[in-house]
């Protein structure tokens, strides 16, 4: 038994028993070696983005070592951050994502509460349906949705296509099912004694939700919010299909369509734009990594 204990915590203790801890030490060295290899693989594209974004066009097309910046310049950043077009993309993205996050939470939190705690006719079926909806990919629905919006325009005169706010209708189809699903899980894990006590004290269902469930399941709520935001921020197919005018584009589509002009790739600016576009999710991730990971792993579990 004692050898096993050393076996598990071996590497940081003094070597006491010959071969086993030596094996452990080697296993550890190999682990670090491969982790470094995989981290280099993971971080190459973002670091290369950063390197390129600091170069001038002349340096990019010169035959120098592409992995190093010889004459760092911020001109790409200055140019993009003073261009109305780019700021417009950023603004559209921010607007769409924030509204979608709010709408998602307003829809999914009450629904998850009802599905987790109030057993009613069809609640189990609906919960399964929510999960199945989460599995439906965007590439299955973009064509019928496109036609649907075109028909709505013909029938009622309400213009939806080529307006940024059309995205406010379609993004929730991607965010709400997942957020509802993980909130069902978080709500179901709250001890029943809590809401029983609240109900005995005379709280209504809504009070139980707002006074007890939301505060207790706050970590889950944060995870769901992060998820909704990153999905809305990163979505590429729907805005590519539904919006075309330059002033209606969101960031991912804006960068890919406007910065690539014909065959001329202004790589310095494209990489700067891509890095700035990747920044909000990365910053959120840097500060709230644990919530992010909790949300990620909660998707595949029930309760």
């Amino acid at each position: 038994m004692s050898t096993i204990a050393i076996d598990k915590a071996g590497p940081r203790r003094k070597v006491k028993y010959g071969s086993m801890s030596r094996d452990r030490a080697w296993a550890l060295r190999w682990s670090y070696f491969f982790l470094v290899v995989f981290v280099i693989f993971s971080l190459t594209p973002p670091i290369y983005m950063l390197i390129t974004s600091l170069k001038s066009s002349a340096e990019i097309s010169a035959a120098t070592n592409p992995w190093w910046v010889f004459h760092p310049t911020l001109s790409n950043y200055v140019e993009l951050l003073t261009s109305n077009q780019f700021l417009r993309f950023f603004w559209n993205s921010a607007m769409v994502s924030i509204v979608v996050v709010i709408v998602t939470m307003l829809i999914s939190v009450p629904a998850a509460f009802a599905l987790a705690r109030m057993k009613f006719w069809g609640s189990a079926t609906l919960a399964t349906g929510v999960f199945l909806t989460y599995l439906i990919p965007d590439s299955l629905l973009f064509i019928p949705l496109f036609k649907m919006f075109a028909l709505i325009q013909d029938l009622t005169g309400i213009t939806l296509l080529n307006r940024w706010y059309v995205l406010l209708f379609v993004y929730p189809t991607l965010t709400v099912p997942f957020c509802t699903w993980i909130m069902i899980g978080y709500f179901a894990s709250i001890p029943k004694e809590l809401d029983e006590a609240a109900i005995i004290d005379g709280a209504s269902w809504l009070q139980t939700l707002t006074r007890i469930f939301i505060p207790v399941a706050l970590p889950g709520l944060i995870a769901a919010t992060i998820f909704a935001f990153t999905v809305s921020w990163a979505q590429f197919l729907y805005p590519l299909v539904f919006t075309t005018s330059i002033d209606q584009l969101v960031l991912p589509v804006g960068i890919t369509t406007t910065l690539i002009k014909g065959d001329v790739f202004n790589w310095g600016q494209i990489m700067t734009g891509a890095l700035l576009g990747a920044a909000p999710p990365l910053i959120i991730y840097a500060f709230l990594m644990d919530y992010y990971i909790a949300g990620l792993t909660a998707g595949a579990t029930k309760g």
Binding site: L35, F38, V39, S42, L43, T44, P45, P46, Y48, M49, T52, T230, W233, A234, F236, P252, V253, I255, T256, F265, W267, I270, M271, A274, L275, G277, A278, P281, L282, Y285, M289, Y292, I293, L296
Partner: peptide
């Protein structure tokens, strides 16, 4: 934290970096 970065960057953005690589 470092290994999860590829999953966090919007795929459209990181694919642009690959396109350039």
């Amino acid at each position: 934290g470092m290994l999860l970065v590829p999953w966090v960057i919007p795929p459209a953005m990181s694919t642009l970096a690959w396109l350039w690589l």
